[in-house]
Write a protein that binds this DNA or RNA. Structure first.
Lengths: 229, 229
DNA sequence: CCTAAAAAATGACATTTGTCATTTTTTACT
DNA sequence: AGTAAAAAATGACAAATGTCATTTTTTAGG
């Protein structure tokens, strides 16, 4: 609970692995560990952040409200992700809000320390740069999918994404369970359309469901569908 | 034509302003100035780049082909933009292709020099980081628009974007002229839908057109439409 | 200035997706 | 285990968008 960053294995997953010992010590001394319950907000769109959140466990959605009242999920962040990073880098308020999808353990790190490292440790700055560049590439792909793929294809892609990133339990179901509405908000469609699409996938034996849980039954066919057949 | 980077005013527009004199000299010695004609490809999706392109004049579209054969434009790059940067940072092949929308003057800079500066000059690395972070924020916004806004709203938004970024000529027409198909590829819709939407905007006196040229006639109404009224 | 090719425009229609209303099922809690 | 609330599922219909065919207009080049 109150471990030291120096010993935290999570940092192997993010840019913090490029930090030097002294830097880690300083960060560790000022960081605050927090438990965030399912449904709670880490930060809201437009807020000015004075630090970042390093995710130790649990899952958070990063989303942006659109004028029609729908929440578009832009990213699902899990263990190792550093939330609020972009906004600290540019010294702007956040463009996204972060809400816990299940109970989370996070460390809050005041931004001064990060900024100092960004200003002095090229290795760290470069690591952050590479990470953000990869987020950008990912975002470009989402744009293309949103613009060019059907809801069916995007639902299929989202299921694949969830399995690839969160794995399966011992029964073969995708480990992360989202509400149909959250899935719809990733896909960028109405929840009814999302539900119908999942039902149709079930009829076609592409997937099986049990409550909220989803299992991919015919991976090949699902992948073909994503590619447009 | 063969000016020195040290004297190039374009670099005030991008991260190159954070480079030191020696760095600029080295880059200047190895850079190659090129003229790229309208319609020509600077680089294609999937290509491995050995350098970046700094745009001195002209406009390029950055796009990605989707499986249905449509080209999704992700960004319009103009004076000062550095193309291929993301791919050099991550040392991967590019995820986008770049095609000139009109005649361009660009400088090709071999990647070694950039990488050296990224490894040694924190100021530069940070400047690049801030720039990529801003691209990411922009991309997040596009995702939300694609997912949640109608074609009408997105066409309106694209027109606003073009006027804001490329200005108007002395008759009030937007300075950059794209084909309807290119506009459709920014909006993420079929060209017929794009044409129909523009025609309807014309009927409603939101815009006026003359050939490819577009002029915003009722900015307020157009902006209201973007917001969803 | 003329002409072929490209782009824009339009019609007709199919398909996809969104919206609203309602019922059924699941979940969380005592 | 029982119950209220939330989530999922489904039907019916409207609206938005895509596709294909065709005509009209514009543009580029000799």
């Amino acid at each position: 609970m109150h471990g030291r960053c120096e010993n935290c294995i999570i940092r192997e997953l993010n840019s913090f692995k490029a930090l030097k010992k002294e830097e880690l010590k300083r960060i560790s001394d000022s960081k605050v560990s927090k438990i965030v319950k399912k449904g709670e907000t880490l930060f809201a769109e437009g807020e000015k952040l004075n630090g970042v959140f390093c995710v130790r466990s649990g899952v958070s959605k990063l989303s942006k409200m659109s004028n029609n009242g729908k929440d578009q999920i832009v990213k699902i962040a899990t263990k190792g992700e550093v939330l609020g990073q972009r906004s600290v880098i540019s010294d702007e308020s956040t463009n996204l809000s972060a809400v816990a999808l299940n109970d989370m353990e996070v460390c809050y790190i005041p931004k001064q320390h990060l900024q100092e490292s960004l200003n002095n440790n090229v290795e760290f700055t470069k690591a952050v740069l590479v990470h953000i560049a990869s987020d950008l590439k990912f975002a470009d792909n989402i744009i293309v999918n949103m613009a060019q793929k059907t809801v069916r294809q995007r639902v299929a892609e989202t299921i694949k994404y969830l399995e690839d990133n969160f794995g399966k339990d011992n029964e073969g179901y995708i480990s992360i369970t989202l509400t149909r509405e959250d899935i719809a908000n990733i896909v960028g469609t109405a929840k009814e359309a999302c539900i119908r699409t999942l039902s149709s996938f079930k009829k076609e034996n592409l997937i099986a469901t049990d409550g909220k849980r989803i299992k991919i039954e015919d991976k090949k066919a699902l992948y073909r569908l994503i590619e447009g057949f």
